[in-house]
Every structure is written in structure tokens, then in C-alpha cells.
Simulated assay, not measured.
Amino acid sequence: MSLNVPKNSSMRLKAVYQRIVDNFLAVVTAAISSYSLVALVRLGPAELISWLRELQLQPAHLFLAGFVPAAAATMYLMLRPRAVYLIDYACFHSSSNRPLARIPMASFVEHTKHTPTIDDRSVRFMSRLLQRSGLGEETCLPAAHNYVPTHEYCTLENARDEFELVVFSAIDDLLAKTGVAPDTIGTLVLNCSLFCPTPSLVDIIVNKYNLRSDIRSINLSGMGCRFSLSVQFR
């Protein structure tokens, strides 16, 4: 016998389970508090006073009774996962001051065919990917894609120039929009799909904007095109 659980119900159950796991301490505390409150209500005032007299509580006991819950609540507030809010974002836009070449998708695919390390199967895969990605004919790509064979112009120097143009422009726009001072940034996370030089891209940004010497930096590279630049301010 098998149970067919609707997809929406399964997703809701997973969400509830995840919420319980993330707030396990709060759930346990709420359950114990609710049980204790119900038990005290059932005792009644007279029985409660009689029970407290029989316990012969000392001042130290009363102190611990108040201190332990307060300490537990404080630890929970300090250790619970913190919400991360998006203050603002910035995207790179090609312009006359920040030029990148407009490459039609057909030209990009045709130039890719002349790369010896890419076979026909990979070209077909890239063509399907471009069709489904939503990229239009006004998409701008690095200048190397204007030349054939393209791979001969994909040099370390050109890659670094492209990185500085795109990333520095986006960061400049973001800092201008938010008004955040570079020396107040405590964490820097950078994701780059392929380019992974030494010194790292994070080091280039830190030196460019004179960020704090104790900044927490994370450099992620080589993870494919689904990752992008992400800067967190704290």
C-alpha cells in the first residue's frame, strides 16, 4: 500500500519540518513552558501555595529559577540564524564610458565552432542553453568574441581587464547608491564562474577599495555560470 502525498502538501511539510529544526530550542522551551503553565493552572491557588511552602525554597533557588530561563533565552537570541537583508544591488551596463562589444548569438555560436577544445556536441548544448537563457541580440560580451579564433584572444590580461571593468563598475555604482563606506564592510563574498587568478579576485577588490585588514573574505571560483558576484555588508 502506498500513500500518494500531493506535491504542495509535501512542500508544506518540508517547510514546517525545516522551521522546527531551525528553531528546535524555541520549540522545546515553548512545549515545556506550556506544560508547566497547564499544570500550575490545574493545581489551583491554594494547592500551589501549599506546594511552594512544602518545597521550602531558598533565595538561591528563586535566583536560579529566574536566571536559567533568562540565560537560555539570551543564548537562543545570540545563536539563532540571523536574517540577511538585501540593501541594494547594482548591475554592470555597457556604455560609451564602459564599453563591451555587442555580439549576436549566431556570431557567438559560429565563433565557438572554431575553438579546437569544443566539439560539436558542446556547441549544440551551448546553442540550446543560449535559447533558453533569455539572452537577447543586444547582449554584450568581451571583445575577444569579435575575433576568430576566439580562444587566441582569451588571455590572462584580457580576462583581468574584463573583471576590473565589470566588477569595479558594479561596486562603484553600489557604493554610490547605498552610501556605504568601504571601511565599514565586514564581509566580502565573490563568485566567479571560471576566472581564478593569483592573487585572488577578492584580494584585487580589497586592495582597490582599501577595505579593512580584518575583513572576512570568501573567494569562490570555477563553479559555473549559475554563480555571480555577491557582496554582503555587515
Rank of each mutant, 00 (worst) to 15 (best):
L135G: 01
T184S: 11
Y89F: 03
R53S: 13
K113S: 09
V68W: 08
I215E: 01
E47G: 15
I204D: 00
L201W: 00
T74N: 02
A101G: 07
K14D: 01
E157G: 06
L52Q: 11
A170Q: 05
D214T: 07
H61P: 03
A170P: 05
N210T: 07
L135Y: 12
Q56S: 15
Y147E: 09
A144I: 13
E54Y: 06
L135R: 06
P99K: 10
E47Y: 05
L211M: 12
P69T: 07
N207W: 04
P197I: 02
R132M: 10
A90M: 07
K14A: 10
S133M: 08
T115P: 02
L64M: 14
R234W: 06
E137W: 01
P6V: 08
I20H: 05
S9F: 12
S9V: 14
L194T: 07
G224H: 08
I205C: 01
I205R: 01
P69F: 03
L188A: 04
V167M: 04
L100H: 01
S96D: 12
L100E: 01
T198Y: 14
Y89G: 11
H145G: 05
T117K: 14
S217D: 11
Y17E: 07
R102V: 13
F24E: 10
I49D: 12
V41N: 05
G136N: 11
S221A: 15
R102P: 00
S34W: 09
T178L: 04
E137R: 05
K177H: 02
G136T: 11
F108G: 04
K177D: 08
R212W: 03
N23T: 04
T117D: 13
P197N: 04
H145D: 09
Y17Q: 05
A60D: 10
S96L: 05
S193W: 15
I32L: 14
L52V: 13
W51Y: 12
N191P: 03
E47N: 12
D214V: 02
I204W: 03
L129G: 13
M1R: 12
A31Y: 04
A39Y: 06
H114A: 13
G134M: 12
L100M: 04
L100R: 03
L194G: 05
V231C: 11
L156Y: 02
F67T: 14
V28E: 06
E47S: 14
N97F: 01
G66H: 01
Y147R: 09
F63A: 15
C196A: 15
D161T: 09
T178D: 04
S213L: 08
P69I: 04
A39L: 04
F24V: 10
S169A: 15
L220P: 00
V231N: 02
V180F: 02
S107D: 07
K14G: 10
A31P: 03
S9R: 10
A46R: 12
Q56D: 15
T74I: 09
S94Y: 00
A143Q: 13
N219F: 13
D214K: 13
I205Q: 00
L220W: 00
C140H: 14
C91S: 06
S33T: 15
V148R: 06
D22G: 05
Q56R: 12
C154G: 09
A83G: 05
D161E: 14
V84E: 06
E162N: 13
Y147F: 10
D172S: 04
M1D: 11
F92R: 01
V166P: 00
S33Y: 03
L100T: 00
K113N: 07
R212F: 03
S200T: 14
R121S: 15
L175N: 00
S230F: 05
T178H: 02
S94H: 11
